[in-house]
């Protein structure tokens, strides 16, 4: 892979001010991306998070040469994505959102055929197909017609097809959708393995535990812009604390609790996001009021809800 070797110093992906406006026939004009900038270093695993319609798929499709941006610039290992897609394509592989394998091939044939079409020799393709299918836990169904597989198994075939390429840069759009918790962990493990071997991964997911466990950095996209960027820990910091105190039926303490941090209600439970310093005071307050309270870490999901929610409020306000 000549491009790969030539450019040891450049980023795997560099996007600057990428914007995209859709002008679909007979539909309103949609500004899906309004200037997204992002950098992926070689060997990184990065997740894009964001609500439905935030622009994640649009960004992935532009980066993977499948969609033209309206403006902005992108480079994959130093190659211009817009001007020279033919230089970028050998370096990437894509799991499209809601993609499906060929129904009338076996998973083994599907992976093998795809690797062959990418110019990989027979012996290597055979070996890699077996390896990828094994990693995705598909050994037992590898020689059955794909149409007879379950939904999650079909999705595993898509992921197996793409990870078997070992392409330098992989784009995975909701790769674990519909997978059981075991299968998801198999995907995470193979992603880690791929990046150890030098590949770079950009994925999207709505499972925030997955994003936290799998990716080294996150970008939260909201309304076509990058809302926040950083590690899961740093993003959690931005919501004003790393701990969450949950007080069951705590409505009557809401006002007092709010002096310690930010309140998020969830049914009758009042959740307080705070730091470790004043935990004792807060617990005492709850106990004295005769209420049950528990302390736990703030999850990425809570941070996400808080940050994106704040941004929606600001837009509306």
């Amino acid at each position: 892979m000549p491009y790969f070797k030539q450019s040891v110093s450049v980023e795997a992906l560099r996007a600057e001010n990428v914007a995209k406006t859709y002008h679909s026939h007979g539909a309103p004009v949609v500004e899906a991306l309004k200037g997204v900038s992002l950098k992926l270093s070689r060997g990184e695993r990065i997740a894009l998070l964001g609500r439905n319609g935030a622009g994640k798929t649009t960004f992935l499709r532009i980066s993977s040469t499948l969609l033209l941006p309206s403006s902005g610039s992108l480079e994959v290992f130093g190659n211009d994505v817009v001007a020279h897609p033919e230089k970028v394509r050998p370096l990437i592989a894509v799991v499209p959102q809601e993609g499906k394998p060929f129904f009338h091939l076996t998973p083994r044939d599907q992976v093998y055929a795809y690797l062959r079409a990418r110019g990989i020799d027979r012996a290597t393709a055979k070996e890699r197909a077996a390896e990828a299918l094994g990693q995705m836990g598909l050994d037992e169904v590898a020689d059955m017609m794909t149409i007879t597989l379950s939904g999650g198994q079909k999705q595993r075939v898509m992921v197996a097809t793409v990870i078997a390429t070992k392409a330098p840069l992989l784009f995975l759009d909701e790769p674990t959708i519909g997978m059981d918790p075991f299968a998801r962990r198999e995907v995470w493990e193979s992603m880690r393995k791929l990046t150890r071997e030098g590949s770079t991964i950009l994925l999207t997911t709505h499972y925030l535990d997955e994003a936290e466990s799998l990716s080294q950095r996150l970008y939260v996209i909201e309304g076509g812009r990058v809302l926040v960027e950083g590690t899961a820990a740093s993003i959690k910091q931005q919501v004003g604390g790393t701990l969450k105190v949950s007080v069951t039926d705590g409505e009557k303490l809401r006002e007092q609790l709010s002096t310690f941090g930010e309140i998020v209600s969830d049914g009758g439970t009042v959740n307080l996001i705070t730091g470790p310093d004043r935990i004792n005071e807060i617990m005492a307050l709850a106990v004295n009021a005769g209420l049950a309270a528990t302390v736990g870490p703030v999850t990425l999901e809570e941070a996400f809800l808080k940050l994106v929610g704040r941004s929606i409020d600001e837009d509306e306000g």
């Binding site: 040469t65 499948l66 592989a93 894509v94 499209p96 993609g99 499906k100 060929f102 795809y114 990418r118």
Partner: peptide, 20 residues
């Protein structure tokens, strides 16, 4: 395979040429 399977995306984002 484009509309229902999106397999065109797998093949287009690859070294295989569109004419192939």
């Amino acid at each position: 395979i484009r509309v229902d399977h999106k397999l065109n995306e797998l093949y287009h984002a690859s070294p295989m040429s569109p004419e192939s």
